[in-house]
Amino acid sequence: MQQSILKEPIVIAENLSVSFLIQRHGINNFKDFVITMGVKSPFEKKNVLKGLDLTIYKGECFGVMGRNGSGKSTFLRTIAGIMKPDEGKLTVKGRVAPLMALGVGLEPELTGMENIKLVGTLIGFEKTELNASLQAIIDFSELSADEINMQVKRYSSGMMARLAFSIAVATDPDILIIDEALAVGDMGFRNKCAKRIDEIKAAGSTIIYVSHHLEEIKKICSRACYLEHGRVEMIGDVHEVCDYYEHQVIRKKA
C-alpha cells in the first residue's frame, strides 16, 4: 500500500519511436547529392527505438541493459532532450543531468577552474549557482589548489574523470543519467562516487543507469529493463532482468 502511494511516475515513454537519419549508401559527398537530387533523398530513416513503452518512477534507481545497438544510448539521449521523438510521447518531469560520457565539454587548454565554469554553464548552471557550488566541486574532485589551476591537458585521465564527475553531480538533479561512466578513477574515488550516488538517491532524485556490468547494476539499481531492437523486452526486478540478460548473451553466443 505504502509502495503505491510513493510511486509517482517521472519518466513516461508511450509508444516512443526515435530514428536516425542515415546517409544512404553511395551518397557521401556533395557531388553525389547534386547528381541524385530530386531522384532520391540522400538520407534514409533508421528506427532505433520502435514503440518503446516504459515508466520510471520518482526516487527509484533504474537500470537499462541491452546489447550493443539495442537503443540504450538513444533512449537516454531522448530523455535528456538531445534527440526528439518521431512518434509517441515522452514525458520527463524535472531537470535532467546527463552523464553520457565523462569529460565531455572539457577544454584541455584551459585550467581545471576555468573548466568548472565552462562545463557548469554548459550543463545549465546559472552564474550564482555555479559560484555557490564552486568550492564543493573542487572539494569533491580531491584536486589540490595547484592542480585545479593547472591546464586540464596535463591531468591524468583519472584526475580528468574526477573533475568531470564532480561537476556533473554538483547539484541534486531530479533525474541523473549515468551511461557507463563510473568505471573511472582509483578505488577511493569510485567509492566516493557510489556514496554520492546514494546521497543523490536519498535526496529523492531518480537515477537511470546503463551498464553491461551486472554486479554494478545489481548493487545500485532496484528495477531494470532489457532492451532489444528498440523495444522493452523485459522489465522487472533487477536480479531477474540480469539473469535474463545473461541467458540472452549465452544463447546468442551458442
Binding site: 539521449r77 535528456a80 535532467v96 553520457m100 560520457a101 565531455v104 565539454g105 554548459l122 545549465g124
Partner: peptide
C-alpha cells in the same frame, strides 16, 4: 559534436 550529443544545449 561531442558536447551536442551528450548534453542538452
Amino acid at each position: 559534436s561531442g558536447v551536442l550529443k551528450s548534453i542538452n544545449v
